[in-house]
């Protein structure tokens, strides 16, 4: 490796820097949303789907039981209850969980633009995997 190559190599690639910037701003936005919605929830500004005082009765039991008793929908069904204090917390949480997909979309575009086809294909496959996980299609049978 020549000294010029080495100099370039120690610097993060433009694609890597784009990824880092998107991740940084996205994480900040996600954390802020998460904290605001949490405050609205615990200080009783928005009425929750499951009353706060009833949660200690539910979190000792399985998720299946929690969903059934608290009428918590599976998958993206929470969007229909987003006006509830506890459910609106998922806006921030889901935004944080979606951040990697957003970053990978940008990364795949950058990689293909710079003719890095193999890595580009890996990035696209990763997007498919993450979207599959997020879709709610993959549902476990429960305990």
């Amino acid at each position: 490796m020549t000294s010029k190559d080495l100099k370039n190599e120690i610097k993060a690639s433009p694609a890597q820097l784009h990824y880092a910037n998107t991740l940084f701003y996205g994480a900040v936005i996600g954390f802020v949303i998460m904290l605001v919605t949490y405050c609205l929830y615990v200080f009783g500004v928005i009425e929750p789907q499951i009353p706060l005082e009833q949660l200690p009765l539910l979190w000792t039991q399985s998720a299946e039981h929690y969903r059934a008793v608290g009428h918590i929908p599976q998958g993206w069904g929470w969007l229909g209850l987003v006006n509830k204090g506890d459910i609106c917390n998922f806006i921030g949480i889901v935004f944080l969980a979606s951040l990697t997909v957003i970053c990978f979309l940008q990364l795949a575009w950058n990689l293909f633009r710079h003719r890095q086809k193999l890595l580009g294909c890996i990035a696209v496959t990763e997007i498919v995997v993450l979207c599959l996980a997020a879709s709610g299609i993959l549902v476990s049978a429960g305990h």
Partner: peptide
């Protein structure tokens, strides 16, 4: 992220905790 989505979709994340 991928594992968290499966747990999120199954109602395994209680925001209060």
């Amino acid at each position: 992220t991928s594992a968290a989505w499966v747990y999120l979709n199954q109602g395994c994340v209680i925001p209060l905790m």
